[in-house]
Design a protein around this nucleic acid. Structure first.
Length: 965
RNA sequence: GGGCCGGUAGCUCAGGUGGUUAGAGCGUACGCCUGAUAAGCGUAAGGUCGGAGGUUCGAGUCCUCCUCGGCCCA
C-alpha cells in the first residue's frame, strides 16, 4: 500500500475561539459588568422608545434575608416576560421594587436590641424606625446584587421601595381616598393578645405548646323554644376556657348535628349531641340511671325527643349567672354555627364574641357585639357586674387558679348549680407568646376596616373625592361587587387562578387595615373625641400627605398634630390614630406609586391611555390571598377597576422528591450556590424548563440534566460559529436557487418561529425552551448539520451548495441567538460577541425576520421517516462489523417508499451512505460498499480509483482552492 | 379540620370534546466515528399513566373513595 497523502489541511473544518467548556461562574460576572458599564437597560429603553408598551409591574419581595429559590424563579420568569416582549419589539421596562415595612423587620431590629441588652420601649419611636429603615435598606442592597447576578435586566439604579418618602406619602394619600369616600370604619375584632406583654400578636409571634386545661360542662336553662318540651331543659356546653363564661352571649348549635333531649337520673332534662352523650355521661355521671355497670342502658326509655340542629332555631336560654341582672339577665339565643362539630364537647358551643373568632363572626352576623370587659393586662374590668375586684379574684384570666375547678368562675357556677363537671385534666395544644412564653388569649380590640359590602351612600357625599370614586365604581356597587367584576375582566395564566382568587374575594371578611405596631405607614386619621367620627377635610388631608412626603412616616406625630389640623380645628378635640397600616395596604398601593406617579418615565402611559396601568402582575400562587388581592381591592376601592390586565401565577419549588424545602430538613437549594457551581444561565434554563404553573422540583439530578441540555445548546452555537468563520455576505444565494434541503430547513425554522411566538403569547416558557432545544437536537445536530458536514468540509468554497448551506447557517444563527437570548442571557451575549466582537449587545436586537421559503413538507416527512428506516436497516451490519459507518453502506430501497422525483444522489446525501439505489423489491437491502474511499472526503464513491485517492468533487475542489491560493 | 391544585418512563415535559400496540427530548446501555473530540452519529431497553372501585363496547382522559404532596385558611 502506497503512502497516502493526508488531505486534512485541505478540508474546511469549523474554526472558532468559542470554547466548548462554558466556565459560566467565572465568565458571567465579566459580561454583567460590561452591561452595567454600557448601561444596557437605558439603551434598550432608548431603542424601544415610542413602541407599544408592555408593563410588567414587579411585586415587591420583602427586604429581609438573602435571595432564595422562590425569588430566583419569580424574577427569572419576570425577566423572561420582559425580554421576550422586548424581543418582539415592544417597550417592556422593568422597575424592581421592595416591600420594606412590617413586623419581620421590626423583630430583627428588636432581636439586635436584645443582644445588646437594650429595651425597645426606651428607644424613641423615630430612632427605632430609623434602624428598621437601615435594616431594610441593607437587604434591598444585598438582594439587588443577587438578582442582578441572575441576569435580570431592570432599572436597578432606581428601584422602588415602599419606604421611600414619596411612596409613604402615596400610601397615605390612597388611604385617605378610602376615608374621603366613606370606605373606612372603626370596628372591633378578636386578635391574639398577650396579657403579659399587653400587646396584640401576629400569627408568627405565636407558638403552640401542649398544656393541661380545666374542662367544664355548664348547663344553660332553656327559657323559650319553638319545641315546647325543651323549655325548662338544660342545654349543656363544654369549654376549656372557664374564664370566658362571664362574657357568654349566645349558644351555637350545628345545623346538621343530631341532638338528644333526655331525662337524667337526678330528674333534670338535658340537651346534648347524640354522638357525644357517652362521653358526657362519663364526665358528669348524669346518665338516665345512677349506675349502669353493665353499660346496657337503652336511652330510648328515657328519651324525650331527638332533634336535628336546624329545629333548634329560635330557642333561647339564660345565663347561669342571670341572677346578677343586667347583662347576665339578657336572653342567650341559639345560633347556627357551621363550625360546630361532634369531635368533642357536647355539640353546643358557648359564644363569647369578645374572645373567639368564630364566636365574634357568628354573633356579629346576628347583631351581637363584643363587650370589651377584659383589659389589656388580662383582668376583668373592675366595674363588670360579675366580679367585684377583690384581691383574691382580681387576677389575669390566663392564671391557672382563675380557671381551676376551685377558681372563682367554677365556684360561682357551682353555686348556681350550673356546673355539671369540672376537672383540670384536658391536654391540648394552645398558643403562647413567642417572647414571654406566656399563654395568649383572643381579645377584641378596636380596629380600622374597609367594608366589603357597603354601598357608598349617595345622599351624603363627604368630599369631592367620593364623587370621583362613585363614578369609577359601578352605580350602587359594593367593593366586593366591583372586585368581582374586575376579576372577570382580567386574564389569568393559568386560568385556574381566576377561580382561586374569585372564591377568596367572594368569601373574605372586611379588610382589617390597622396594626398596633411601629414600623409602617400610619393610619393618618383624626377622630373626633365627642362623636367618634374621623375627620374628613380634604385640606387637612392634603397637609398630611405633603408632610409625609417631606418627612416620611415620622411626620405623623403628636407634635405636628395641630399644624396638620390647621386653624379650623383644635387638636385637643381630636384623637390622633396611632395604628399603622397592614403592610398589604402598602403593597396594594404600589400601582399608584410606581405606575401612576410619573416617577419612572419608562412606566408612564400616554395621556389618553385608559384602563389598568399594568399589563401583567406575575407572582407565586400564595399571592392570590396576598398582593393580587390587596392590589385588586385597593384599586377597586379608589379607581373602580383592577390595576392589572392579566395575572400570572407560578407554583412553588420543591426538593427533588417533591417535598417542601426547609432549613430543618436540610433540603434547601440556594440559587446562590447554583450560580456559584453552575452559573446563572443554568438556573435560568432550569426555571424556564419546568412547568411553573404547578409546583416543580429542583435537585442535583435535575440540575445535571439541565446542564446537559445547556451543553447541547452551547455546542450547537459553537458549531455554527465555527462553520460560519469567515462568512461573507457575498456568499449568499437567493432562496429560490438553494437546494431543497436548505429550503426545507428554512421552512422548519419558520415553524419553530411560529411555535416560539405562540409560546411567548401564552407565557408557556417550558414549551419555548423545549421547542428550541428539540430543534437543535433533532433538526440541526442529528439531521441538517450531520448531512451537510460533508458539504461544509469538502465542497469548494464557491460551490452553490456550500454557499447555500452557509447562508442558511447564517440565518439560523441570527434566529437562534435571538431565540436563546432571553433564556441564557449570558451565553447568548458570549455567542454574539464571538461572532461580532465590535458589535453591540445581542439584547438590543429584535425578533428575527426570516426569509420566506417553500418546501414540499409531506415529501420531507416521508424522506425523514425513510431515513430512520435506513438507519435501522444499517444497524445489524454495524453490529456484526460488516460496515462501520453508514458511509460504507450501499442501500437499496423500495422505489415505492421514495417520494416521486427524488434522485438517488439526493437520497445518498440525506442518508449519509455510500450509495442509494431504488428497486422494485418490497424489502430494503443493505450491503457493504464495493467503492473505494476518497482520501479527502472519506466517502466511498464509484469515481474513486483506489482507497486514498480523490473523488471527482474533491479533485475539482482542490483545484479551485489551489488556483485561488 | 376546611377551600383550591396536583401526582404520565431515571429526569424535564406532550398527550382538544374518552377510541387502534401511551409519545418526545435528555439521561442510561451498547455500538460507530476520531476532520464539532470532555464533541458528533446510530440502535436499544425503560411506563400495571399514584392506588381502589364505578360509568362505558372502550378511560391516562368522566365519576366516587383512598393515598401522597403543595398553596391558602382554621
Amino acid at each position: 500500500m502506497s503512502e497516502q497523502r493526508d488531505y486534512k489541511d485541505t478540508v474546511f473544518l469549523p474554526k472558532t475561539d468559542f470554547p466548548m467548556k462554558a466556565g459560566l461562574p467565572q465568565k458571567e460576572p465579566g459580561i454583567l459588568a460590561r452591561w452595567e458599564e454600557a448601561d444596557l437597560y437605558a439603551r434598550i429603553r432608548e431603542a424601544r422608545k415610542g413602541r407599544e408598551q408592555f408593563i410588567l409591574h414587579d411585586g415587591p419581595p420583602y427586604a429581609n434575608g438573602d435571595m432564595h429559590i422562590g425569588h430566583a424563579l419569580n424574577h427569572i420568569l419576570k425577566d423572561m416576560v420582559c425580554r421576550t416582549q422586548t424581543l418582539l419589539g415592544k417597550d417592556a421596562p422593568y422597575v424592581p421594587g421592595w416591600d420594606c415595612h412590617g413586623l419581620p423587620i421590626e423583630w430583627k431590629v428588636e432581636e439586635q436590641y436584645r443582644k445588646k441588652k437594650k429595651n425597645k420601649d426606651e428607644v424613641p419611636a423615630k430612632e427605632f424606625r430609623a434602624e428598621c429603615r437601615a435594616y431594610a435598606q441593607h437587604w434591598v442592597d444585598t438582594q439587588r446584587e443577587q438578582l442582578k447576578r441572575l441576569g435580570v435586566c431592570g432599572n436597578w439604579d432606581k428601584p422602588y421601595l415602599t419606604m421611600d418618602f414619596e411612596a409613604e406619602a402615596t400610601i397615605v394619600a390612597e388611604l385617605l381616598k378610602f376615608a374621603e369616600s366613606g370606605q373606612l370604619y372603626r370596628g372591633a375584632k378578636p386578635v391574639m393578645w398577650s396579657p403579659v406583654e399587653k400587646t396584640a400578636l401576629a400569627e408568627a409571634e405565636v407558638e403552640y405548646e401542649d398544656i393541661v386545661s380545666t374542662q367544664i360542662d355548664v348547663a344553660f336553662e332553656i327559657t323559650d323554644s319553638p319545641i315546647e318540651s325543651l323549655i325548662g331543659a338544660y342545654a349543656v356546653i363544654w369549654t376549656t376556657t372557664p374564664w370566658t363564661i362571664p362574657v357568654n352571649q349566645a349558644l351555637a348549635y350545628g345545623p346538621d348535628v343530631k341532638y338528644h333531649h333526655y331525662r337524667a337520673h337526678d330528674g333534670r332534662r338535658f340537651l346534648i349531641a347524640v354522638d357525644l352523650l357517652e362521653a358526657f355521661f362519663a364526665r358528669t355521671g348524669l346518665g338516665p340511671v345512677a349506675e349502669d355497670p353493665e353499660g346496657d342502658i337503652t336511652l330510648s326509655e328515657y328519651s324525650l325527643g331527638t332533634y336535628h340542629g336546624e329545629e333548634l332555631a329560635g330557642t333561647v336560654a339564660r345565663h347561669p349567672m342571670h341572677a346578677l341582672g343586667g347583662f347576665f339577665a339578657d336572653p342567650r339565643p341559639f345560633l347556627p354555627g357551621d363550625f360546630v362539630t361532634t369531635d368533642s364537647g357536647t355539640g353546643l358551643v358557648h359564644m363569647a364574641p369578645d374572645h373567639g373568632e368564630d364566636d365574634f363572626d357568628l354573633c356579629k352576623a346576628h347583631g351581637i357585639g363584643p363587650k370589651f370587659v377584659v383589659e389589656a393586662d388580662g383582668r376583668y374590668r373592675e366595674d363588670w357586674l360579675w366580679l367585684p375586684r377583690t384581691d383574691e379574684r382580681s387576677m389575669s384570666v390566663i392564671h391557672p387558679k382563675f380557671n381551676a375547678p376551685e377558681g372563682p368562675v367554677c365556684q360561682d357556677l357551682h353555686e348556681t348549680g350550673a356546673l355539671l363537671a369540672a376537672s383540670a385534666d384536658y391536654k391540648h395544644s394552645y398558643p403562647h407568646s413567642w417572647r414571654s412564653k406566656a399563654k395568649v388569649i383572643f381579645r377584641c380590640t378596636p380596629q380600622w376596616f374597609v367594608p366589603m359590602d357597603k354601598v357608598i351612600d349617595r345622599d351624603t357625599p363627604r368630599c369631592a373625592a367620593e364623587a370621583e370614586i362613585r363614578a369609577a365604581q359601578g352605580d350602587g356597587e359594593t367593593l366586593r361587587q366591583t372586585a368581582m367584576r374586575a376579576l372577570s375582566a382580567t386574564r389569568f395564566v393559568p386560568e385556574k387562578g381566576r377561580n382561586r382568587i374569585g372564591s377568596m374575594v367572594e368569601g373574605r371578611p372586611d379588610w382589617v387595615l390597622s396594626r398596633q405596631r411601629a414600623w409602617g405607614v400610619p393610619i393618618t386619621l383624626f377622630v373626633d373625641r365627642k362623636t367618634g367620627e374621623y375627620l374628613c377635610d380634604p385640606e387637612v388631608n392634603t397637609r398630611i400627605v405633603t408632610a409625609i412626603h417631606h418627612g416620611g412616616v415620622d411626620a405623623w406625630d403628636e407634635e405636628n398634630a395641630q399644624a396638620l389640623l390647621g386653624n379650623a380645628y383644635d387638636a385637643e378635640d381630636y384623637e390622633r390614630v396611632t395604628d399603622i397600616l397592614d403592610v398589604w395596604f402598602d403593597s396594594g398601593s404600589t400601582h399608584a406609586f410606581v405606575l401612576e406617579s410619573g416617577r419612572w418615565p419608562e412606566l408612564t402611559r400616554p395621556a389618553d391611555y385608559a384602563g389598568p396601568p399594568a399589563d401583567l402582575y406575575l407572582e407565586g400562587s400564595d399571592q392570590h390571598r396576598g398582593w393580587f388581592q390587596s392590589s385588586l381591592l385597593e384599586s377597586c376601592g379608589t379607581r373602580g377597576r383592577a390595576p392589572y390586565k392579566a395575572v400570572l401565577t407560578h407554583g412553588f419549588t420543591m426538593d427533588s422528591k417533591g417535598m417542601k424545602m426547609s432549613k430543618s430538613l436540610g433540603n434547601t437549594v440556594s440559587p446562590l450556590d447554583v450560580m456559584r457551581d453552575y452559573g446563572a444561565d443554568i438556573i435560568r434554563l432550569w426555571a424556564l424548563s419546568v412547568d411553573y404553573t404547578e409546583d416543580h422540583r429542583i435537585g442535583p439530578e435535575i440540575l445535571k440534566g439541565v446542564a446537559d441540555q445547556y451543553r447541547k445548546l452551547r455546542n450547537t452555537f459553537r458549531y455554527m460559529l465555527g462553520a460560519l468563520s469567515d462568512f461573507n455576505d457575498a456568499e449568499r444565494l437567493p432562496v429560490t436557487e438553494m437546494p431543497e434541503l436548505e429550503r426545507y430547513m428554512l421552512v422548519l425554522v419558520g415553524q419553530l418561529d411560529a411555535t416560539l411566538r405562540q409560546a411567548v403569547d401564552a407565557f408557556d416558557f417550558n414549551a419555548y425552551v423545549r421547542a428550541l432545544s428539540d430543534f437543535c437536537n433533532e433538526d440541526l445536530s442529528a439531521f441538517y448539520f450531520d448531512i451537510r458536514k460533508d458539504c461544509l468540509y469538502c465542497d469548494a468554497p464557491h460551490d452553490p451548495r456550500r454557499r447555500s448551506y452557509r447562508a442558511v447557517l447564517d440565518t439560523l444563527f441570527h434566529a437562534l441567538v435571538r431565540y436563546a437570548a432571553p433564556v441564557v442571557v449570558y451565553t447568548a451575549e458570549e455567542v454574539w460577541s464571538t461572532r461580532y466582537p465590535a458589535g453591540d449587545s445581542v439584547h438590543l436586537l429584535e425578533w428575527p425576520d426570516l426569509p420566506s421559503a417553500e418546501a414540499d413538507m409531506d415529501k420531507w416527512t416521508q424522506l425523514r421517516s425513510l431515513r430512520e428506516k435506513v438507519n435501522e436497516a444499517i444497524e445489524p451490519l454495524r453490529r456484526e462489523k460488516t460496515v462501520r459507518s453508514g458511509l460504507e453502506a450501499q442501500v437499496t430501497v423500495p422505489a415505492a417508499a421514495v417520494p416521486a422525483g427524488t434522485a438517488n444522489a439526493a437520497l445518498t446525501e440525506l442518508f449519509i451512505t455510500s450509495t442509494v439505489t431504488c428497486s422494485d423489491e418490497g424489502e430494503m437491502r443493505v450491503e457493504p460498499t464495493t467503492h473505494h474511499k476518497c482520501g479527502r472526503c472519506w466517502r466511498h464513491l464509484p469515481d474513486v480509483k483506489e482507497d486514498g485517492t480523490l473523488c471527482g468533487r474533491c479533485e475539482d475542489a482542490l483545484a479551485t482552492v489551489e488556483d485561488a491560493g
